[in-house]
Design a protein around this nucleic acid. Structure first.
Length: 418
RNA sequence: GGAGAGGUUCCCGAGCGGCCAAAGGGGGCAGACUGUAAAUCUGUUGGUUACACCUUCGAAGGUUCGAAUCCUUCUCUCUCCA
C-alpha cells in the first residue's frame, strides 16, 4: 500500500475507503489533490473537528496537496448527518467572520505557506460560498439535480434517521451541494480525493457518483473513525463545555489538563491521532512497565504545543508539575495558571470568601461558592475554608504575596495583589 | 387546509389547584478511595444581604385567598389525513 496511506492506517485514522487499490496506485504515481470540508458553524473549532486535519497534515508531508474547504455556503443550509434536529441557520455575517477565525486555527496543523518546503504539498483554503451563493436554481436542478435519485438518498442512514423526526427540504439538499463542491474542486483544481468523518460517507460517495456521471472521471473517498473517548463521551466535550482551540474560550492550561486527564485506554490511541510523534517513539509508551501517566503527560504537552505553541505548552506543563508534583508551588509554576488581579486596598478591607471565589472561574455565583465551601472543597493555599462567612484579608497571602485559590484537587486560580 | 398530541429547571422526564424551587434518571460540582485515570460509594445541583425572601414550568392576559397545574388569546413543535 502507498506509504502515506499506510501511515494513516497505522495511526488509526481510517475507517473506510471507496477503492483502496486504485487510490493507493494513484498516490504512488503522483501528488494527489484532496480536500476536507469544515463547517464554520461557530467562531472556534474544537478538537473534535481536528481529526481530518491531522490526517491532512500527514498527507501534506507526503507531498499531496490539501484543500481545506470552508463551508461558507453550505453552512447556510445545515447538514442533517448525525444531527437529530434542524440546526439553526447563521447569518451571512456570522459565517464570514467564523471562516476567518477557522482559517487561522487550521494553520496550526496545515502549512498554508505560499512556497512550501521541498517535498511538502501545497495547501490552499477555499470557501464554497464563492460558487454556491450565486447558483441559479433552475440551472442547478438541470445540471446537478437530475443525477440524484430520491429513492437512493432515502436509503442513506443519515436521512433515514431524520425521517423519523422530520427533515426539512433545505437539509435534504445538503448532499447535492456537497457533491457539487467535490465536482467543482475536481473541475477547477483537479481534486481527486475527499476525506472526512465517517458520518460524511454518504455525502462523499454521492459526490464521487456525480463526478463519474458528469465528467466520466473516477474520484475517491476516505473516511475516518469518529473518535470517541473510551468512556463514551464525545470527543471535544468537557465539563467546561467544548474544548475550543481559541485560547480565549478555553485556556491553554485547561487545554493541557484536558489531555492530561484522558482515560488510560485512550492515551496511546490519542498520541497516534493527535500528535506528530513518530510511531516507534509512541511504541515506547506501550511497553510493559511504562507508567501510563508519562504517555498522558507527553500527549498533553505535544498537543498543546501544536495548537497553542511551545511557549504555552511549557507554561502549562510547569504549572501542572508544580501543582501536582512533589515540587512546591514555586512562582515559576504559576505563570500558566488562570489569574485575577486584585487591588491591595480591597484585600486590606477584607473580602468575604464567597465573593472572592465567585470572582474567579472556580464558582459561578455566590451560591455556587457557598456549596463549594460547605462541601469542603474550597482552599486558599494550604488552608481549607470551612466557614462560608470567612473574610479573606492580607493575612492569607502566601510567601509570594499572592492568594492561591483551589476548588477541589484540580482547579486552581491565582489572585495577584497589586 | 382538517383532526389530534404536546412545549417543565443544563438534558431526558414526572407533576395536572395549596405539602412545588418542582419526583426520578443523566450530566456537572464537591467529599471518600486512587495514579491529576476508570469504576464505586456519599453529598450537592435557580438566585440573594440565606432558617427568610426573590425569579423560574413556551408568551401575554384572566379566574382564585392561592396556579407549573383551571380559562382566553398568541406562538412553536410533533403525529395522522388532504
Amino acid at each position: 500500500m502507498n506509504r502515506a496511506l499506510q501511515t494513516l492506517v497505522d495511526r488509526g485514522f481510517i475507517k473506510a475507503c471507496t477503492d483502496w487499490d486504485a487510490l493507493s496506485a494513484l498516490m504512488d504515481k503522483e501528488s494527489v489533490t484532496f480536500y476536507v470540508g469544515a463547517d464554520p458553524t461557530g467562531k472556534s473549532l474544537h478538537i473534535g473537528h481536528m481529526v481530518p486535519f491531522f490526517a491532512m497534515h500527514h498527507l501534506q508531508l507526503a507531498g499531496h496537496n490539501p484543500i481545506a474547504l470552508v463551508g461558507g455556503g453550505t453552512a447556510m443550509i445545515g447538514d442533517p448527518s448525525g444531527k437529530t434536529e434542524l440546526r439553526k441557520m447563521l447569518t451571512p455575517e456570522e459565517v464570514a467572520s467564523n471562516c476567518a477565525s477557522i482559517k487561522e486555527q487550521l494553520g496550526t496543523v496545515v502549512d498554508f505557506s505560499e512556497v512550501p518546503e521541498p517535498g511538502v504539498g501545497k495547501a490552499v483554503m477555499l470557501n464554497n460560498a464563492d460558487w454556491l451563493t450565486n447558483l441559479n436554481y433552475i440551472d442547478f436542478l438541470r445540471e446537478i439535480g437530475r443525477h440524484f435519485s430520491v429513492n437512493r438518498m432515502l436509503t442513506f442512514e443519515s436521512y433515514k434517521a431524520r425521517l423519523e423526526r422530520g427533515l426539512s427540504f433545505i437539509e435534504f439538499n445538503y448532499q447535492l451541494l456537497q457533491s457539487y463542491d467535490f465536482l467543482t474542486l475536481y473541475r477547477d483544481h483537479g481534486c481527486r480525493l475527499q476525506i472526512g468523518g465517517d458520518d460524511q460517507w454518504g455525502n462523499i460517495v454521492a459526490g464521487i457518483d456525480l463526478i463519474r456521471k458528469t465528467e466520466s472521471a473516477e474520484c475517491y473517498g476516505l473516511t475516518f473513525n469518529l473518535i470517541a473517548r473510551s468512556d463514551g463521551q464525545k470527543m471535544g466535550k468537557s465539563e467546561k463545555g467544548a474544548v475550543f482551540l481559541d485560547p480565549t474560550l478555553f485556556s491553554p492550561y485547561d487545554f493541557y489538563q484536558y489531555w492530561r486527564n484522558v482515560n488510560d485506554e485512550d492515551a496511546i490511541r490519542f498520541l497516534k491521532l493527535f500528535t506528530f510523534l513518530p510511531l516507534d517513539e509512541i511504541a515506547q509508551y506501550e511497553k510493559e512497565g511504562v507508567n501510563v501517566n508519562d504517555a498522558k503527560a507527553r500527549l498533553a504537552y505535544e498537543q498543546t504545543a501544536i495548537i497553542h505553541g511551545v511557549e504555552e505548552a511549557e507554561k502549562a506543563r510547569t504549572a501542572a508539575q508544580a501543582m501536582f508534583g512533589s515540587a512546591n508551588l514555586g512562582s515559576e509554576g504559576r505563570d500558566g495558571m488562570p489569574t485575577l488581579e486584585l487591588e491591595k486596598e480591597r484585600l486590606e478591607a477584607g473580602i468575604p470568601v464567597l465573593e472572592l471565589f465567585s470572582m474567579t472561574d472556580l464558582a459561578a455565583t455566590n451560591s455556587d461558592a457557598r456549596r463549594l465551601v460547605n462541601g469542603g472543597g474550597a482552599w486558599i493555599g494550604d488552608a481549607k475554608i470551612g466557614d462560608p462567612k470567612s473574610v479573606i484579608d492580607l493575612s492569607y497571602l502566601d510567601e509570594f504575596g499572592e492568594l492561591l485559590l483551589r476548588a477541589g484537587k484540580k482547579r486552581y486560580f491565582r489572585v495577584v495583589v497589586k
